[in-house]
Simulated scan of single mutants.
Amino acid sequence: MEIRIGSLTHPAVIALLDQHHQDMLLHSPEESVHALDLSALAQEDITFWCAWKDDALAGCGALKELDNAHGEIKSMRTSPDFLRQGMAKLLLEYMIREASSRGYQKLSLETGTMAAFLPAQKLYQQLGFQVCPPFADYQEDPYSTFMTKTIS
Rank of each mutant, 00 (worst) to 15 (best):
M1K: 04
I5P: 13
S7R: 14
H10K: 13
A12C: 08
I14F: 04
I14P: 02
L16S: 12
L16C: 03
H20L: 12
D23A: 15
D23V: 10
L26C: 13
L26G: 08
E31W: 09
L36S: 15
S39H: 03
L41Q: 09
A42V: 05
F48E: 09
W49E: 10
W49Q: 12
A51G: 12
W52I: 03
D55A: 06
D55Q: 07
A56T: 10
L57D: 03
A58W: 06
C60S: 11
C60W: 02
G61F: 13
G61K: 08
G61T: 12
L63D: 11
L63G: 05
L66R: 00
D67K: 07
D67E: 06
N68A: 13
G71A: 03
M76N: 12
M76L: 09
T78M: 09
T78L: 11
S79E: 08
S79Q: 06
P80L: 03
P80E: 10
F82P: 05
L83S: 00
R84L: 04
G86E: 00
M87L: 12
L90N: 11
L90W: 07
I96W: 00
R97K: 13
R102S: 01
Q105E: 13
K106H: 12
G112S: 05
M114G: 01
A115Y: 02
A116N: 04
P119C: 09
P119E: 06
A120K: 15
G128P: 04
F129G: 03
V131N: 11
C132T: 15
P134F: 11
P134W: 14
A136W: 14
A136H: 11
D137H: 14
Q139D: 13
Q139W: 12
E140H: 15
E140W: 10
E140L: 13
T148Q: 14
S152F: 09
